[in-house]
């Protein structure tokens, strides 16, 4: 027993200035990221129609206002619907593009990659304006699928990026092993390639969903009266009524985005490793 203290002493972590600074920096960064959300939270539950601190009470009146407003609800459903379509389209297009770029032996591959990534380089407001003018020019107006296509355009690079990253580290012998064991090219794709690149495609898909759900600049010119997405409705609402409904809406969209990510993770993400 008497040796116990002696044995403990080497385990005691001496004060390390570098480590303390590291933890401190992380805390500051976390606070920087989360504090605005905390303020939104306070604003959302505070019954006063303006940001007051300390809050005078807790009330759900802004959530009530948000959920009972048909404008907000229509916009919310439209945004979710658009983001869902964008997720599917971006995954299909971005995934296929990534495969073609990584595997296709295409001439001018680096040019094509840069081309597909270019929507990220362009200011989104210009993308929106340019598409708006193009749509008017060809006379299709501003249909919902036009909005979905616009969002897909800026979402595809995210899927492309993450999928290319996975494909870059992909051992092609694994596919050859499957082929030599009797798997046709189609089966190789579904049995081996797809499951292995799925985490990358999926991560890109989550980005695509969020990029669309939060999309403001691209939507700005492309939404139509009675067909406005949530960020656009919130922006315009703010010009007239800057009350807690905005904060409630923000909370709801944050929670919804998290929920969607978690559900997708459950459905697609984890299963990729648990199943087969």
């Amino acid at each position: 027993m008497s040796t116990t203290p002696a044995r403990l002493s080497p385990n005691r972590v001496p004060f390390d200035a570098g480590r303390a600074a590291y933890i401190g920096l992380n805390l500051v960064l976390l606070a920087f990221l989360l504090l605005p959300i905390a303020i939104v939270l306070v604003f959302a539950f505070n019954p006063m129609p303006y940001i007051s601190f300390p809050p005078v009470g807790i009330s759900l009146r802004w959530f009530d206002k948000f959920f009972s407003s048909s404008d907000f609800m229509n916009a919310l459903w439209l945004s979710l619907w658009v983001a869902g379509c964008v997720l599917v389209l971006a995954v299909l297009i971005g995934g296929a593009c990534a495969l073609a770029l990584a595997r296709g032996n295409l001439p001018g591959r680096s040019f094509l990659t840069a081309f597909f990534m270019s929507p990220l380089m362009l200011p989104a407001i210009l993308t929106g304006l340019a598409l708006f003018q193009s749509y008017l020019l060809v006379g299709i107006g501003r249909p919902v699928w036009g909005l979905i296509m616009a969002h897909t355009l800026v979402a595809v690079p995210y899927v492309l990026r993450t999928t290319l990253a996975v494909l870059h580290n992909f051992d092609r012998r694994i596919e050859e092993a499957a082929a030599v064991l009797g798997a046709s090219p189609t089966r190789v794709f579904f049995e081996v390639t797809l499951p292995l690149i799925r985490p990358g495609v999926f991560a890109g898909g989550v980005f695509a969903f969020i990029v669309s759900f939060d999309q403001f600049p691209v939507s700005l010119f492309l939404v139509v009266p009675k067909g406005e997405t949530l960020p656009v409705v919130l922006f315009n609402y703010m010009k007239f009524d800057l009350d807690g409904a905005i904060a409630a809406a923000s909370m709801v969209s944050i929670l919804l985005a998290i929920a969607v990510v978690l559900v997708l993770e459950r459905l697609i993400g984890l299963k990729a490793y648990v199943k087969l």
Binding site: R173, I174, A177, V192, P195, L196, A272, Y273, L276
Partner: peptide, 8 residues
């Protein structure tokens, strides 16, 4: 490189 299927 063995080329085993890592997900199986």
């Amino acid at each position: 490189s063995y080329a085993l299927f890592p997900h199986r």
